[in-house]
Design a protein around this nucleic acid. Structure first.
Lengths: 148, 148
DNA sequence: GTTGCGAATTAGAATTATTCTAATTGGGTG
DNA sequence: CACCCAATTAGAATAATTCTAATTCGCAAC
């Protein structure tokens, strides 16, 4: 069921009226700013920073403030609709890809999603004693990706 | 050979006169500040932040500046004597453990080293196409560790 | 329909880790 | 001993993020 909802979330890019629904289903009160921010993340899947999201949503919502963008992103992350990705000391990037995956950070600044087979996370989990409560596993590659 | 040097680096906590040697072997000009900073990291393996290192080394070197601590840490990281560990937006932590390993970030702020079998990094590497040039793989667990 | 309420939004100030700048010091070499 | 370059220093600057306090919004009760 949750899987279905997530799938909807990821495929509802072209269904603006569904976005409010998805937010509500995840316990997020759907305000117009939250819808705009979430919709922007769904439409361009390139791991934007808060500033970049701010620039993008301004076109649709010219009065939105940067603080609100931060607030909306935090709420979305808190409710597992969006993932926050941190790399070194660079600004946090945001990602609407809900499937478990790793990130590759190119030396030129690009960030790519890397699919992870489900078993890999379990193997990693297996490195820890059973009495550890693991909430999240993060895998980051760093290097140089082929030019195209 | 490199492995032997690393082992020396890790076991020379009690051999202050060896620290300069280890730095030099890694291409780092051994200044007294660098020796103090590196020695501090070797002695207390608890992933301190730059500020914490600053506080610790002040006892031995009361005139050292925070900028120098940052400089020394950067040099040590650049020359692979120390690893910089970033987690979420928290201040960078530093780690003199040279063996490949992952990190567990406790919700109370503790950071633990987690041993990784060599094969695990290779498996992770295998998720990427061959034409990716991988410089580093970072694995971070987040959750709650047993109280003691 | 108006009023009231709590949550959300806003603008701008504040915070904080880190980096930068410019001046000083220091250690090794000629 | 003098020189030179790298390292160090103090403090200012930067930049991402968070905080604050005031305003606005949307809905529910009346």
């Amino acid at each position: 069921m949750q899987g279905l909802i997530d799938l909807m979330a990821e495929t509802s890019t072209q269904n603006p009226e569904r976005i409010a629904e998805v937010l509500a289903d995840h316990g997020v009160r759907p305000t117009s700013q939250r819808e705009t921010v979430y919709s922007s993340l769904l439409q361009k899947r390139d791991h934007p920073t808060a500033d970049e999201v701010f620039a993008r949503v301004r076109e649709k919502a010219p009065t939105i403030s940067l603080a609100t963008v931060y607030n909306c992103l935090d709420v979305l992350v808190q409710h597992n609709l969006v993932k926050a990705v941190n790399f070194e000391r660079a600004p946090t990037q945001y990602c609407a890809n809900l499937a478990p995956h790793a990130h590759f950070h190119d030396e030129e600044g690009r960030t790519l999603d890397i699919d992870m087979p489900a078993g890999m996370f379990e193997q990693l989990r297996g490195l820890l004693p059973q009495n550890f409560d693991v909430k999240d596993i993060e895998v980051n590659f760093h290097g140089r990706a082929p030019k195209s």
